[in-house]
Amino acid sequence: MKHTLAILVENRSGVLTRVAGLFSRRGFNIESLAVGVTDNPDISRMTIVVSGDDHVLEQVIKQLNKLIDVIRVSDFEPGETIERELAFFKVKVDKGNRSEVMQIVDVFRAQIVDVGVKSLIVGVTGTNDKIDAIEKLLRGFGILEVVRTGTVAMNRGAKTVKPGK
């Protein structure tokens, strides 16, 4: 099953290797990973999306909790989170189809973030599914390059993932 984890870690070098090592040792492929600093500059937050055997993942979470640099691990309940990722698509365009691309951009509430003579960069935020959908449509024009961030996620409502005491 697919899981989205939020991991609060000490903002130090080497932490990512320690975290990633626990997944790879048990044969988990990390589907997406996003890291950034939190409101406390000493603490970073990782959002990791993985899928695999639930029992094994439970072990990985326990092992993550054992890492000294890991402050907290949260396995989000499906459906109770807001999840987004950001993607840039560099699309091949010409005079003839430029407006067609821009229509798609409008429908997806994406943005044109760069305009060139022969290309456009489309920036889009959304769920993983939404980004897959726009990618599918843009492919028809010829995608020159893609970059996607990992998913970031947060609980709906007042519930938070905080370091605790």
Binding site: G14, T17, R18, G21, R25, L67, I68, D69
Partner: peptide
């Protein structure tokens, strides 16, 4: 050595 001993120490430091 911190890389090498990552999976066989409780923790390590450089």
């Amino acid at each position: 050595i911190t890389g090498i001993t990552l999976p066989i120490t409780k923790h390590n430091y450089l």
